[in-house]
Design a protein around this nucleic acid. Structure first.
Length: 267
DNA sequence: TGTGATGTTGAATG
DNA sequence: GCATTCAACATCAC
């Protein structure tokens, strides 16, 4: 589920629950989501370590350990955290859990098992290896323009590409395109500089708003595109255009007919 | 009951 | 080698 703003909230939750905590034991129920070692090896690596702090970049959350190594938590589509003390509060979909020396337990839950958890000797080397782009909140306009130059893919495709900018997901990309009045399937190489600038500005505005104000996908203002009225055939409150559903970059995409146009349609 | 889902990856293709 | 597309991953909820 989580996109950048949601992982931002996971970081806050994780920091409150885990900063300064020593791992007495790491209990693995299902090691499917632990991607670079078997469950017992992961538990051995974590046991006795203290969590110093965390770093979020895009949708990736790194827990930094007292030995200079790190644990990557990527929440996939359905990952979640759950702090508890009583065993009966363990979540149904807990896949593994940090058991801290003070008795608190931080469970990592993930019904769909799309999450990715790795034990990393070298966090920065991993970031370089997967070519993770800059966090959306740190995105600079000149860098953004450079990354778009020469690309022929769709606007949606490039915004979802985590090596271009880290943190945007399906829903926020639709929101950004809606606000810019650009069709998500617009080809990047056909977009004007003004259009790219508008996209850049809305990335920043949406991400800033979302991280500063929003607890989760619910609870957004009514005028957010995907929040309450994003349904096929719904009229846009501003333009009256109809909401359409299409596939772009392999993902279900919502846009408003007439309001959001392709560059070629206006040139 | 079938269908689709807020994400990423790696193979296949151009 | 690079850019791009797409099936696969596993399970739940509607």
């Amino acid at each position: 589920m989580p996109e950048l703003p949601e992982v931002h909230n996971f970081k806050k939750y994780f920091d409150a629950a885990a900063t300064g905590q020593k791992i007495a034991e790491l209990v693995v129920h299902d090691d499917k989501i632990i991607r670079n070692m078997p469950g017992p090896a992961f538990a051995d690596a974590c046991r006795g370590r203290t969590i110093i702090d965390s770093l979020r970049r895009g949708k990736y959350l790194f827990a930094n350990l007292d030995n200079g190594e790190a644990i990557l938590l990527h929440f996939g589509m359905t990952g979640d955290l759950n702090l508890y003390q009583q065993p009966e509060d363990k979540g149904r979909f807990e896949r593994f859990a940090f058991h801290f020396t003070d008795g608190n337990v931080l469970g990592f839950e993930d019904p769909r098992k799309f999450a990715r958890v790795l034990y990393l000797k070298d966090r920065d080397a991993y970031i370089a290896e997967v070519k993770l782009g800059p966090d959306a909140l740190d995105l600079r306009q000149d860098y953004f323009f450079e990354k778009l130059a020469g690309r022929k893919t769709t606007l949606k495709g490039i915004l979802l590409n985590q090596s271009v900018v880290a943190g945007l997901g399906n829903l926020y990309v639709d929101e950004i395109c809606y606000r810019c009045n650009i069709h998500p399937a617009a080809r990047v190489n056909e977009m004007s500089d003004d259009a790219k600038k508008a996209v850049y500005d809305q990335i920043m505005a949406v991400m800033r708003y979302a991280t500063e104000n929003a607890p989760y996908y619910h609870d957004y203002p009514e005028n957010w595109f995907w929040h309450t009225w994003r349904k096929e055939g719904q009229p846009d409150p501003v333009t009256g255009g109809e909401v359409k559903i299409v596939k772009v970059a392999g993902r279900t995409t919502y846009y408003v007919e007439g309001k959001q146009t392709l560059p070629s349609a206006t040139d």
